[in-house]
Design a protein around this nucleic acid. Structure first.
Length: 563
RNA sequence: UGGGGUGUCGCCAAGCGGUAAGGCAACGGAUUUUGAUUCCGUCAUACGGAGGUUCGAUCCCUCCCACCCCAGCCA
């Protein structure tokens, strides 16, 4: 894992938001003796950018108020959950820089207690077993504008309910035979209060409890009670659970739970050109549109990490986005900006040529070469320098040459002089072409008085400085360029998300060269390829053939002006 | 005449009755051996709309409009 720094180690100021204001007010008023939050993922997929917002919020608040944040797996639906996801989630939360300490919990840890509380509800007349078939139950629930109807089983005797519920637990009934329902109000305007299901029969193997259970609590019955058991003071979730709060509170009030947690909701994160829906991300992986959950184009923490984004950049992004209750769509440019701002101060500079064009220096002695010094970081002299080789045959970027340049093209063109960074001034004298008219090489001359890239005695200036590599020791590499997975800012707005999948989100360049210093780059460690972008080695690479991922490009005002 | 939310600059987002923070983007300009970085500067007489209360309203009230969520034995 490339990024092991923790939030504590980073320090930094945190913005204010309505959640923090509520917590602060509760602390000030003495309503809570300590702040306890929780991040409660269901282990049915990988964590993504949206989860990062929740993680930073929950762990962040706990840290700021010297409280604690639990990692709790909301594992109440065994048919969707897997150990693979449980492991990945823990890895990703740690990578993001947060530590739950001893507070790793699972809703499944509370199955026995939850079961007892379900019986409590039955005994107090607040819950009943309903044998109504699922489709009929749906019909009886009414619609958004019409009230529902009471189930014929609603007034079964307590003893009968208890016996039936125990039969459910004992495995005497098949899936779907019946459910346990809370007895609330079938006419409520809030659908969640129309006798919600608390338990269903699921003959399935659970990743943690195995076959110990064949009935499982629903989210509504498990979540608030788990919060109460753990002493959560502020149960923060996303807006779509707002309608569940009355049920959350109802259950807490009708059960002998040990504490009184409160639920608060914030708007989930949306980012342009990406999708943060577990259902769709799962489809992308399952149908092979990406190489896996950690494909660098994926908005998953695993994918983002593999692309080379440091955890600190994600935290910075989340902090810039803020926390509010208004649905919004954040410009992905904000993420790119946070990544650049995080990487720029420290990423070592290197040279790499993505699309090589041979450059031959006619007046440089054949067979000769020399070693020059390249600065590792222009703003951080502490990083020092590294030796680079200069010779008669070099590679420069195809984009840095134009035979017939437009007005503001400062780079190489016939007759034009440029600086080769840390090398020499060179002037293009002529070009070589193949039979198809493609430029195959540039023939140049160099000025020996500009060694190191310094201006010559006559004070001549050049308008461009190019990156380059000596053909003699350039290391062949594969470089993968990624762009948005979707080709519109609001994928799926027209209905079919898959129809908006971009066909060109992955660009694999195979004839690339990188400087020798890059040969053994540790996987995931950020470097800046000068004038190109931030990159990191991908695990797919080998010692003699490294593979690099572009994390994010550099700002390019020339490219922008060009279009 | 179902319930619950939200509407402040192109995109996020502060603001909590006293005269519109900040970030991203954009656009100028300076410095620059990365057309990068950095640095300066520009960018809401205006807070969904209409009324009202007030000396004064983005902040309070009323009505209206738009958008989001809810009818899983998913979370």
């Amino acid at each position: 894992m490339a990024d092991s720094d923790t939030v504590e180690a980073k320090g930094g100021e945190v913005g204010r938001d309505f959640i923090r204001d509520i917590v602060q007010a509760d602390v000030d008023a003495g309503r809570v003796s300590g702040v306890v939050t929780r991040f409660p993922p269901e282990p049915n997929g990988f964590l993504h950018l949206g989860h990062a917002k929740s993680i930073c919020l929950n762990f962040g608040v706990a840290n700021e108020f010297a409280g604690r944040c639990h990692l709790r797996f909301d594992d109440t639906n065994p048919v969707k959950e897997e150990q693979l996801f449980i492991d990945a989630i823990q890895r990703d939360v740690k990578w993001l820089g947060f530590d739950w300490g001893d507070n790793l919990h699972h809703a499944s840890d509370y199955f026995e207690q939850l079961y007892e509380w379900a019986e409590h509800l039955i005994r107090t007349g607040h819950a009943y077993v309903d044998d109504t078939a699922a489709d009929q139950m749906r019909a009886q629930r009414g619609t958004l504008t019409e009230p529902g109807q009471n189930s014929p089983n609603r007034y079964r005797a307590v003893d009968e309910n208890l016996g039936r519920f125990r039969d459910m637990r004992a495995g005497k009934l098949p899936n779907g035979a019946c459910v346990l329902r809370a007895k609330i109000d079938m006419a409520s305007g809030n659908m969640n209060l129309r006798d919600p299901v608390l338990y269903r029969i699921l003959h399935a193997t659970h990743p943690r409890t195995g076959n110990a259970w064949c009935i499982y609590p629903t989210y509504d019955f498990a979540h608030g009670q788990s919060d109460a058991i753990e002493g959560i003071t502020h149960s923060v979730c996303t807006l779509e659970f707002e309608d569940h709060k009355p049920l959350y509170d109802w259950l807490i009030e009708h059960l002998p739970v040990p504490s009184r947690p409160r639920q608060y909701e914030f708007a989930r994160l949306n980012v342009t050109y990406t999708v943060l829906s577990k259902r769709i991300l799962t489809t992308l992986v399952r149908d092979g549109h990406v190489s896996g959950w950690d494909d660098p184009r994926m908005p998953t923490l695993a994918g983002i990490r593999r692309r080379g984004v440091p955890a600190a950049a994600l935290r910075e992004f989340v902090s810039r986005v803020g926390v509010a209750r208004a649905n919004s769509m954040v410009d992905v440019a904000m993420l790119d900006s946070a990544i650049r701002d995080t990487l720029n101060p420290s990423a070592p500079r290197r040279m790499a040529v993505l699309r090589p064009l041979k450059l031959i220096i006619e007046n440089y002695p054949e067979g000769a070469s020399e070693t020059l010094a390249a600065i590792d970081h222009p703003d951080d002299p502490e990083q020092g320098t590294r030796p680079i080789t200069f010779g008669r045959e070099l590679y420069v970027e195809q984009d840095d040459f134009m035979e017939n340049p437009p007005k503001k093209f400062y780079r190489l063109s016939p007759g034009n002089e440029v600086r080769l960074r840390y090398g020499y001034y060179v002037t293009c004298q002529s070009i070589e072409k193949d039979n198809d008219g493609n430029v195959t090489a540039l023939r140049c001359t160099y000025d020996p008085q500009t060694r190191g890239g310094n201006a010559p005695p006559d004070g001549r200036k050049v308008k461009a400085t190019l990156h380059w590599l000596a053909a003699a020791d350039a290391v062949p590499a594969e470089i993968r360029l990624y762009s948005h997975l979707f080709n519109r800012p609001d994928p799926g707005a027209d209905g079919d998300v898959m129809a908006d999948l971009a066909s060109d989100s992955l660009d694999v360049l195979t004839g690339c060269f990188v400087e020798p210093a890059l040969a053994g780059s540790p996987v995931g460690e950020a470097v800046q390829f000068e004038r190109t972008g931030y990159f990191c080695a991908d695990p797919d690479g080998t010692a003699d053939r490294p593979v690099f991922n572009r994390t994010v490009g550099l700002r390019d005002s020339y490219a922008k002006a060009r279009v």
